[in-house]
Design a protein around this nucleic acid. Structure first.
Lengths: 153, 153
DNA sequence: ATAAAGTCTATAATAGTTATAGACTTTAAA
DNA sequence: TTTAAAGTCTATAACTATTATAGACTTTAT
């Protein structure tokens, strides 16, 4: 029931790219190295992760001097569920209950398999959160918390 | 976000031991081999799993001829959450959000870390299901489904 | 005494995760 | 037009965890 480092790093990087978006401005551009440095992520590992997110359309990039990565869509439209699926695969705890990567599990009667019933509930609950939380939701929540705690910046 | 085979096998075995409990009768006794055969689980692997569940007090056993395993507590009191924690460790997707096995994650400010906020919600949601679903709940649910589908026995 | 069961620990086999390496491409600017 | 700073891509090394098997031991009913 665990999020991999790959997933964690990817989420942190995406949150980083979403965090100081200014209204009316183009999305901020950041280099791999910068994100890696700020979030203490091995740069070469992050490179692969960002590439995967780019291939999934969640990031765009600019090559060459002054290049870097930036969000591929408005932060309101990027859900954590999408990010995690790209990096770690299906949310379902067990394949036979996955909406996006179903596979039969071989239990004698799938319809009345107790394990499926519960794991399906779990999948549902997790997806309900992760597919309805966007990068924008996170920044809002964090900003709100910072304010209410009276922290600067 | 996945349940291991170990966890899956353990859950299936526990459900098997709970399924034909008769009121007023002692809990049914089953041998490793029998469970392994019925649920298509490698017997030697299951052996380790049942031993772990036994050491956690969720199962009791009887050695020697005519021996086997049986539930260590009423099925109403055995939650899936407990079983999974014994076999797979904490439910939390990320350690810094675990109630049972907390570990700091090294983010600069834990209080306002966006990842923690969401993953904490996820942990909560998963635990809400798994810690409030007992073996008895499962058998009831499965029996109900079988009846409503008109399947025999 | 024997055979059928669980106990216990080690380790093999496999797979998955995490990380590093290096050669390549694109692009801005000197 | 060269150079350096960026991303791209693929391979593979290092590590860790999972899954499974092996085998010697203990207990107990018959």
């Amino acid at each position: 029931m665990r999020l991999s480092k790959r997933g964690e790093y990817g989420l942190r990087a995406m949150m980083r790219l979403a965090e100081d978006i200014q209204p009316g401005q183009p999305y901020p551009l950041m280099q791999i190295k910068e994100i890696a440095g700020r979030d203490k992520i091995p740069a070469k590992f992050l490179e692969q992760i960002l590439l995967a997110l780019k291939n999934a359309g969640l990031l765009h990039s600019k090559m060459g001097i002054g290049g870097g990565y930036y969000l591929g869509k408005p932060p309101e439209e990027i859900t954590l569920g999408h990010i995690i699926r790209v990096l770690d695969g299906p949310l379902a705890p067990i394949r036979c209950v996955s909406q996006t990567a179903y596979e039969p599990c071989g239990c004698p009667d799938a319809l009345t398999c107790g394990l499926r019933l519960v794991m399906s509930d779990v999948r549902e609950a997790v997806a309900a959160i992760l597919d309805h939380t966007s990068l924008a939701d996170i920044t809002n929540r964090v900003d709100g918390l910072r304010l209410s705690l009276g922290l600067g910046e």
